[in-house]
Design a protein around this nucleic acid. Structure first.
Lengths: 343, 343
DNA sequence: AAATGATGTGGCAACGATGCCACATTGCTG
DNA sequence: CAGCAATGTGGCATCGTTGCCACATCATTT
């Protein structure tokens, strides 16, 4: 009854194509995949029929049968932060070129969401995972599941997994040196965390710079803040309203820099006359404001594509030596830094 | 030989769990899913064993068997543009809450990549798709494949698919009215396209405002530009360097506004004294520069979550009436607009 | 003429999870 | 005590695709 010629409401399967082309499933599969022997005429006919029926192979079934998948998981901390958005865009571009589909998850910096996402990745049997990790557990977990993983931006696994990072310590030291060489002696550091390698290295670079310059670090100038603009802004207002205001402020990332910038505006301070400001991590607005913000430019897109390259390498050679790729970062001097006013 | 107790290198399957727990696959499945009868003691034992083996159900196999999937496809034009990043973040949040995995693809505004991505979505048998469409084909294609789709930000399908958009025409008219009411008569419009509903409606709103104010539109003030900052910047430099410079510039989106802003800087023009600038679409930098940029604030996060809500509704009731959700947009007056100088 | 290789085709058993069905074993009720 | 519902359990086919294998049919070689 409804067996023959029923205009199919279900999506077409390879069986439908086979029936319509009058050949077996096996032949159809060979015709469509291009593997194995098929007569040229048959191949063309099958392909035409497939096209006609709007046949799209069931990726799940295929990946189940082939025991491998063409998707990779990407886990970032905050898509709305241009750093992560650029990073994801860098991965996306390359992934597509290599025929991979990207599953992007934003864990909002939450360790629990991060682990949940990792479980989902395992469930989908992704070919590999790129993560800007929030906790050490995720790498442990994924490695135990034998899923290739690349830690990006920061690393927790301490050599157990591949990693792609920026040379935070060096860039941070140079940025700090820049301020010191302008004559600054009271340089505050706004930083949101020092437990990840990013924060720890940026902190270390800053300290190293002070030490090498013979400056005693002032603990009251070390300002720990939360990871959002509002918190940084409030902390920066407090800092800049002090009687013994620092002559320069080093912000450990673009979000904190935004807070500092807004705080300077709130207090009516002139940059760089009243205070110099620098940022670790460039952002579009930093070259649009007046004066421009002196910053360390991390190429997040390049970071993403380097992470993808490493992941594809790892997928290719699962047992190869673990690698940590370190990228350089440039300092972009702009107008927000100048010699401090004489007291 | 290697049949028994081999420490499995492969990932554990339900079969492994069943064997280890000493029950059948069926019972194991029931124990893990919670559907159907299982003795409480058995359930606990099976769950413990599963945990122990690090068992994670094969999502592909499950979705193949159940003939339904828990992932949705999201297709945006440019992840690096904060508008799309916010939009995606808005979707991501809700998707997770509803147990869906988001497959995010950046088609870079390219129609061919868009169609490719759509095919990949069909291949993965996603439950639905949210797209900021680049061409009309994608909706046609997905609808023919019986995949629920929501067009966001702009719509091509003309009522054939659900849509979630901002009231571009009204917001654009108001923004233009704002300039007119300040006394501007020569208002240039920088716009990158007028074929999508976004561009067409913003253009229409601008024209409508001029008409209603009895101003004759000047074709030389209608500047078509490309969709990137560099192009907009060059075009804006040309525009603002004219002898008969417009007294105000209306940028049709945040990217063009960035170009105009930089162009004003290039020419050493003071905003708003020499020229007023407004932007359709707010961005973080617009409240950080001096003066702030008067802009229409589209809530991209809300747009994303509205699109998700509509999609889930459609998945729930596939045959329900097609809906177009229209969101309002606010004008944020800042310092970049003022009355024109007397000539 | 028989043997060999190249070219083509179809049957069928997986991949892992699920849910229907048949079959036990209880504890009740009439 | 037959009859029956409630509670448990296992067997097995199925989802769509793939690739191995067996089996044709031909042309070419010994």
């Amino acid at each position: 009854m409804d067996e023959v010629d029923a205009p199919l409401l279900r999506r077409a399967t390879i069986k439908d194509v086979a029936k319509a082309a009058g050949v077996s499933q096996s032949t159809t599969a060979r015709a469509l995949s291009g593997e194995g022997y098929v007569a040229a005429t048959v191949r063309e006919r099958v392909r035409a029929v497939a096209e006609d029926l709007g046949y799209v192979p069931h990726a799940m079934a295929s990946s189940l049968r082939k025991q491998q998948s063409r998707s990779i998981g990407v886990l970032v901390s905050d898509l709305r932060n241009p750093f992560y958005a650029d990073f994801a865009a860098g991965i996306a571009r390359g992934a597509r070129q290599h025929g991979y589909t990207m599953i992007l998850v934003d864990d909002r910096g939450d360790a629990a969401e991060e682990i949940d996402a990792a479980k989902a990745f395992v469930g989908m049997r992704v070919a590999g995972v790129i993560v800007t990790p929030v906790s050490a557990e995720i790498s442990t977990y994924l490695l135990r599941q034998h899923i290739p993983i690349v830690e990006a931006d920061r690393t927790f696994s301490n050599g157990a997994a591949d990693a792609v990072v920026v040379d935070n310590a060096t860039a941070s030291r140079r940025l700090s040196d820049h301020l010191v060489s302008l004559g600054h002696r009271r340089i505050a550091l706004l930083i949101d965390e020092t437990e990840w390698t990013t924060g720890a290295d940026r902190f270390a670079g800053y300290m190293r710079s002070l030490e090498d310059s013979g400056l005693a670090p002032d603990p009251t100038l070390l300002v720990p803040v939360g990871s959002d603009v509002g918190d940084a802004r409030r902390a920066a207002v407090d800092l800049l309203a002090r009687r013994d205001r620092p002559t320069a402020v080093f912000s450990a990332n673009n979000i904190l820099a935004e807070g500092v910038w807004r705080a300077a505006g709130d207090l009516g301070l002139r940059v760089p006359d009243d205070v110099s400001i620098v940022s670790f991590d460039d952002a579009a607005w930093m070259s649009m404001v007046t004066p421009g913000m002196t910053a360390v430019a991390q190429d997040a897109v390049a970071l993403g594509s380097a992470a993808l390259t490493r992941l594809l390498g790892r997928i290719d050679v699962p047992a190869g030596p673990i690698e940590t790729v370190v990228l350089d970062a440039q300092i972009l001097p702009r107008g927000s830094t100048a010699a401090p006013r004489k007291p």
